[in-house]
């Protein structure tokens, strides 16, 4: 981890070079492809692609909407809806975003790492699916592919941003309070804008016609591939759910998973997720009240208790 600090300056130059090159390619390629009629005539104009890229950048940074970023526009459900507004069909956008989001239901970012990038799957994935004319179920597989590639943005940013922590150190040595605050915001946000906005915009603008052509070709020559994508839409959500189960499917609460499953299957959709959630709240009160807390999903409890005790010792030693 600390190695990133030493490599950061070189990484900054590399990342800047890559971004500038991407930008140059976009400037040249955009108009050229546009003349061929293969860019911009699929319902995704350059302006719309820029809005999608902007949304993707904002979703990675809470400065505009606070909790509405990571818990809001970072989620494909919301991102898809907004892409739908940008592309002129909010209902279809919300459907596609919702389908893609199923895969990221269990998305947990912990300890400075992400297993995938739901946001790029939501923003770019939905835009490509709508531009290419894919239905919601098939869009899941496309979203997965884009979302996996998108982790590149996160890891680049995590490496390079360490540099700005040192810039903040330098401001602190000057006693410059405002400078420390600015170093936390301005340089990392400019960098994030470059590495998130540009690739997303380019991917949407140039990618939509490619996706559309690919779908058309497959529809005539190998329709089973499109069926395969739809089937994947039913299989892949198991991964999203299992990722969440990794955190909570343990200890004395395991039986409740099966209870929830049986409630949903047996009621045949008669109990929706909100009703089942309310039953769940009731049962969790019962469980905690009747059985105590001894044996829940206890992976971190031992560590928590230990740390709390040691802090408590420190506190009492200091006569608080």
């Amino acid at each position: 981890m600390l190695g990133a600090m030493n490599e950061a300056p070189a990484r900054v130059k590399l990342a800047l070079a890559v971004s500038l090159a991407t930008f140059a390619v976009m400037l040249v390629a955009g108009p050229v492809l546009g003349q061929d009629g293969s860019g911009g005539d699929t319902g995704v104009s350059l302006f719309q692609a820029i809005l999608v890229g902007l949304g993707y950048y904002l979703s990675n940074s809470p400065w505009l909407v606070g909790n509405g970023a990571f818990f809001g526009i970072y989620r494909p459900l919301v991102a898809g809806f907004l892409v739908g507004i940008i592309l002129g069909d909010p209902v279809e956008g919300a459907k596609i975003g919702a389908a893609i989001n199923i895969l990221y239901l269990g998305f947990i970012s912990a300890g400075g790492s992400i297993p995938a990038d739901p946001s790029v799957a939501g923003w770019v994935g939905t835009a490509l699916a709508m531009g290419g004319g894919l239905d919601a179920n098939s869009a899941i597989a496309l979203g997965v592919a884009v979302g996996t590639l998108g982790t590149f943005v996160f890891f680049t940013r995590m490496s390079v941003d360490a540099t700005f922590a040192h810039w903040a150190d330098a401001r602190a040595e000057e006693g410059d309070i405002g400078g420390v605050a600015r170093m936390n915001v301005i340089p990392p946000q400019i960098f994030l804008f470059i590495i998130s906005f540009i690739p997303a915009t380019v991917a949407v603008y140039l990618g939509a016609p490619v996706v559309e052509n690919a779908i058309n070709w497959l529809g005539t020559n190998a329709p089973w591939v499109l069926h395969g994508l739809q089937i994947a839409g039913g299989i892949l959500p198991a991964i999203g759910i299992a990722m969440n189960m990794k955190f909570i499917f343990r200890g004395s609460v395991i039986p409740y998973f099966f209870l929830g499953y049986i409630m949903a299957v047996a009621s045949g959709g008669g109990l929706n997720i909100l009703m089942i959630g309310i039953i769940g709240v009731a049962l969790s009160f019962l469980h905690v009240t009747l059985l105590g807390n001894g044996s829940g999903p206890s992976g971190r409890q031992a560590a928590g208790g230990g740390a709390a005790t040691s802090v408590g010792t420190t506190a009492s030693a200091e006569g608080m």
């Binding site: 269990g106 929830g260 039953i279």
Partner: peptide, 10 residues
């Protein structure tokens, strides 16, 4: 954990 498991099952 109780609530989360029920919802995940559903």
């Amino acid at each position: 954990g109780v609530l989360g498991n029920i919802v995940l099952g559903a």
